[in-house]
Design a protein around this nucleic acid. Structure first.
Lengths: 290, 290
DNA sequence: TGCGTTTACGTTGTGCGTAAGGATT
DNA sequence: AATCCTTACGCACAACGTAAACGCA
């Protein structure tokens, strides 16, 4: 179970080809073949079918473990080799809906206080932010999700349990302002089982829809929240969204959620070893004290 | 960052000696020295001071990562090599206070239903149960802890987030029955800042005391809960305990906790790949449906 | 027949043990 | 002087590349 072997195994699993994996990793086909054979003989199990190259059940399990292990290995290296000197620039990553008013304000304050600190910003899906933060590619990651009030987010591996709460706001059902439900003061999702929903995994942090059993009338694959709100306003369907996204919009109504009780929550992830790259008083404080 | 190197590094870190580590791992001193040198040159950092052998700051960080990584590596192996055939025997691990009435009842039912299934039981501290379950040394692990009501437990790495809630009961402050507080219907921990506490990390799942700022008058290092309750009854101090531990005891009073609102919670951990070793209907169902 | 994986084999390099060297108490 | 880690050196095995063989479309 050498990480080297795991790395090529993951590559083979994802490309579906020994030769393609070899090319990516700058090996020969032969070497890849031998490495996979070594893994299989070590574990005493077949991991891949050949021709076509597909994962066996054991292989699929190993792939999941291996991806996590490789990230954590990188994370460990990043943590150990991190110099104690404060970095010259700050790299910050966000999921699309983690960018809210308090975060914007905090960032403004940070940049005003430490103008010398060059800042890089990246917006990407949850998984990318989580792994990039774990490996130290990002100094800080802001991620969002829906949970029960005051519950921590359940992050995908290798999410760091030391994440800090940054903001929490009510989760609402977004409907067009002319919608029959628009004046309701509260709805339960169960009452909306017959409605059509917009499934937008790139925007909202649900993998699919917030609750099983809801029908998606439209699947939106982008990450642009204005497109999603536009689709809702145009009557293509409903979605569960954080309340702040809808404030000030005349074309949309926000209906508070009754059951299940959900909030939209933003948490701050730190790269291993990062306490506060901009000094103890400024960055974390700015993000955490809105 | 070969796992082999990490393994010997951890061994050196824990024994504080190259030669002792070499002996444990069946290597020569020389090999260990070379391995550590290889790690240090790979990471570009000094990990250990020699003479005396002590961890540097980077070394301490690596040690923490390495311990987790090695467990997860073993866990991956256990998961992949696990046969789909149901095992002939069931190995169950518990933390001391995870053994409560509903668990006892569930176990009785399990053994009655599947009498052929040999059962092994292990009681050990939280960390041991968590790692043993993760690596597949245990099929199932029952762990306990205190959290806010309906919150999941925050388990030490490499705790599996797929843990299942088994039981939850109120957390109470245990006092001798003659104690001035014994008739109170509720207390806040803040009100008890002046009291003396018994610090019993082997019994209660707090690392130290439930809240920082409480003074420990006595430190009990064992894992026997009857000793702890006995100490409380004898007036040596107070402790936060699950309510069921005190029911029926005339010498102790249980005062419900006001702030912070805490419950004692038992969760079930499954070894990787274990769904229900005794068949879909029996074991998990018995544990989860009290 | 052709594409892609496996096997054979020669070469290179890594990693261990033996044994000598060096440093610290 | 004793103990413990490091370095030097030789050997063995593991790992890769080249090239030929094999097997499935």
């Amino acid at each position: 179970m050498d990480p080297h072997l795991l790395r090529t195994f993951v590559e083979v699993a994802e490309t579906g080809s020994f030769s393609a994996a070899a090319e990516r990793l700058n090996f020969t086909q032969s070497a890849v073949s031998q490495q996979i054979a070594a893994l299989e003989s070590d574990l005493g199990t077949s991991l891949l079918t050949r021709r076509p190259v597909r994962l066996t059940e054991a292989g699929e399990r190993l792939r999941r473990h291996a991806k996590i292990l490789l990230v954590r290995l990188e994370a460990a290296r990043a943590d150990v080799t991190r110099t104690s000197a404060p970095p010259g620039r700050l790299t910050l990553g966000l999921t699309p809906l983690a960018w809210s008013a308090p975060v914007a304000a905090a960032l403004t304050r940070i940049r005003a206080e430490s103008a010398r600190l060059a800042t890089r910003l990246l917006v990407a899906p949850l998984d990318r932010i989580v792994t990039a933060t774990a490996t130290g590619a990002l100094d800080l990651g802001l991620v969002d999700g829906f949970t029960a009030p005051s519950d921590p987010l359940r992050l995908p591996e290798p999410g760091d349990p030391r994440s800090l709460r940054v903001a929490e706001c009510p989760a609402v059902v977004a409907v067009p302002s002319g919608h029959p439900l628009a004046r309701r003061t509260s709805v339960d999702l169960a009452d909306l089982a017959d409605a059509y929903w917009i499934d937008a995994p790139g925007v909202t942090p649900f993998r699919r829809l917030p609750v099983d059993g809801l029908r998606a009338g439209l699947h939106y694959d982008g990450a642009e929240s204005t497109v999603l709100t536009g689709l809702i306003a145009a009557g293509h369907g409903l979605a569960v969204l954080p309340e702040w996204l809808l404030t000030g919009r005349a074309d949309l109504a926000a209906i508070p959620l009754g059951v299940p009780r959900l909030v939209h929550r933003v948490e701050l992830l730190r790269a291993p070893g990062v306490v506060d790259p901009a000094g103890p008083a400024s960055l974390l404080a700015a993000l955490l004290a809105p």
